[in-house]
């Protein structure tokens, strides 16, 4: 996985690419550490360029959601495609993390 950061005021959009699996753990921890530093009120994960996510990837979303609550960051997902959308839907992750389909 790799990602690009777009900041606009206190809104941060992270455009993720590739696969969200256990290997993305390090990138997620970097992303979450930056929330702790403050200055970000709203964070959106744009998943449109993610072509695969497994259950460990879902685990990273749970971890991010919990970290967002602790840091006072509003966290949401947008534009999952293909298998990623299917996984989010059958797992009903949009019921615990707001997701714009």
């Amino acid at each position: 996985m790799d990602y690009t950061v777009h900041d606009s005021g206190n809104l941060r959009e992270l455009e993720l690419r590739g696969q969200i699996t256990f290997e993305a753990d390090g990138d997620f921890r970097t992303i979450l550490a930056e929330w702790q530093q403050g200055g970000i009120g709203d964070c959106v994960l744009n998943l449109s360029a993610v072509d695969y996510m497994d259950s460990a990837g879902l685990g990273l979303l749970v971890m991010a959601n919990n970290a967002a609550k602790q840091a006072g960051v509003t966290f949401r997902l947008k534009h999952p495609r293909g298998q990623v959308r299917e996984l989010i839907e059958i797992s009903e992750f949009h019921t615990i993390i707001p997701c714009e389909f």
């Binding site: 259950s55 879902l58 839907e89 059958i90 797992s91 009903e92 992750f93 615990i96």
Partner: peptide, 10 residues
Amino acid sequence: PSCGLPLGVA
């Protein structure tokens, strides 16, 4: 059909 949060999440 299939829908439901995985066990242990919430």
